[in-house]
Amino acid sequence: MDRKTVNPRRLNGRRLFSEYSYVVSFILILIIAVCVNPNFFRWRNITTIFRQSATTTGIIALGMTMIICAGQIDISVGAQVALLSGFGITVLNATGSIWLMLLFCLAGGALIGTVNGVLVAYGHMPAMIATLAMQTSCRAIINHFGQGGPFAVADGMSTEPYYQTFREVANGSLVLFGQKVPYPMIIFIAMGLLFGLIMRRTRWGKHIYAIGSNEVSARLDGVNVNLVKVSVFTMTGVLCGFTSWLYSSSVMAVAAASAGNAFEMDAIAAVAIGGASMSGGRGKIIGSFLGVLMFKIINNTLVAAKVPTFLTGAISGAIIIIAVLLQNVRGRRR
């Protein structure tokens, strides 16, 4: 009440900053990147950043945004990618069809995600625990089947006809306006737009925000809370499946023990940098989208600056801390 009596203009200014702090962070990082690496804005560099995002955690982060907005968490995404990539390649090798592999990955992801969701919604398990168990299980299973070597497309024989076809998925590109645009970049941008639309303009999106904000109110508003919870996990599983397909194509040989390592952390960090509230209810697709890019730009810049590889993690960590602190400065006001 008393807060309403202060100048509403000023409040709006602060709100604007708090809502769009990820844009500020993004621009800051762009400036730093250009200073360190004058070649940053070369088209080739840009497409590389997008391709790296899409074939690793970019698309997963979109699903993670939904999960976090619903007040949940999923730490099994990295292990899901390892499992689906490994078995996906097995399917590919057996059938020679990249589309059957895609279908397998999507269906498998949906299944794993749904199990996660059902454990959380109907089994009343904390999401952290349910997905931790899923993470351990997935990783163990794929390690077991991957013993004695990685899962390689066509066992590494590039003479197989589908070898080249599959390689094209992550490495091919479309020529648009005289520029080569990699398929993963197109897919990533399209997915970002699609999920932005879902979160902003559909009932499903509104329900996700509603249950993350206040589950009791949401139930009284007629939201089927359990179903929405399951749906976000299922969708994230599907996106993990899709990512597995792109990821496999970009690496062509997947090591069971290390594939998708730390994907969950990168995805969660991207969502956090993107301004989402970890307790649910607030967060934007565009924020996470830029968050993912920020990550890759940082890595890209660190490489250009010849920072030793093992140290890059520490610097990324520092940047996450700074970006999130920036948001919390205004958060304390609440």
Binding site: L197, R200, R201, T202, R203, K206, H207, Y209, A210, G212, S213, N214, V216, S217, A218, L220, D221, G222, V223, S277, G280, G281, R282
Partner: peptide, 30 residues
Amino acid sequence: ERGIHNDLSILDNASMGYYNALMTRPLISM
């Protein structure tokens, strides 16, 4: 505890009932 959605805007708070009871089209029209 049981009414408002703290994190949502005034508009979304006001529209939540409509979304669930009456909306038939797939996309929300701002």
